[in-house]
Amino acid sequence: MANLIFQLFKGLNFSVRIFFLTLLFSLPFGFVVAKGRMSKIAPVRWITDLYIQIMRGTPLILQLLFFYFAPFYIFHASYDRFFAVILAYVLNYSAYFAEIYRSGLQSMDKGQYEASQVLGFTKAYTFFHVILPQVFKKILPSVGNEVVTLVKDTSLASTLGIAELFRVAQTSSSRVFSTTPIFVAGVFYFIMNYLVAKFFDVVERKLDYYE
């Protein structure tokens, strides 16, 4: 059992890396996508919309395979498997975050922009000091949802043979002819998401001081 836990922790290391790297890039990139989706230039809007539709409309597992094998078949080039995994997750999650950001930005009362303009705030000041803090509060629950999903989605990286938590559990499961490792891995995922949920709870409560 001690050995199993040790193995699972090694797998967890990969899962956690996928998790944080995905968030690190997709949270900001999602904003760029959201801006593209709301662009005044129609072709930019169309292309971003198509990108979002594809990312949301096809299975992540398929996207993982695509980002790993497509470069090989098209350019006869191959690259690091882990890189392909991160690329797929970032592009997928950016699309979801983009839609959350967009809904948050579009739900802002235009009176907030007008009051800022009348008071003489610049556009940038208005965005960073008036709009963004309010949007942040609004979208926090939706972002929390996505982050919880991401924790579970990291298990899909096993498709490309990344030795993350789920893969490790599966391998040791077949080695010892028992489902215990998979069950224990489930407990790991649950604990991670418990921590994620608590984290979002705390942030939400910190922002409770206004409506």
């Binding site: 009362d109 009348v118 803090p133 309010q134 206004y210």
Partner: peptide
């Protein structure tokens, strides 16, 4: 335009205070 913007103030029907 900016100079004149600063010389005028506007009070809105629905206040538009900054809630945060």
């Amino acid at each position: 335009r900016r100079e004149l913007n600063l010389k005028t103030g506007l009070v809105f029907q629905n206040f538009n205070l900054f809630p945060h």
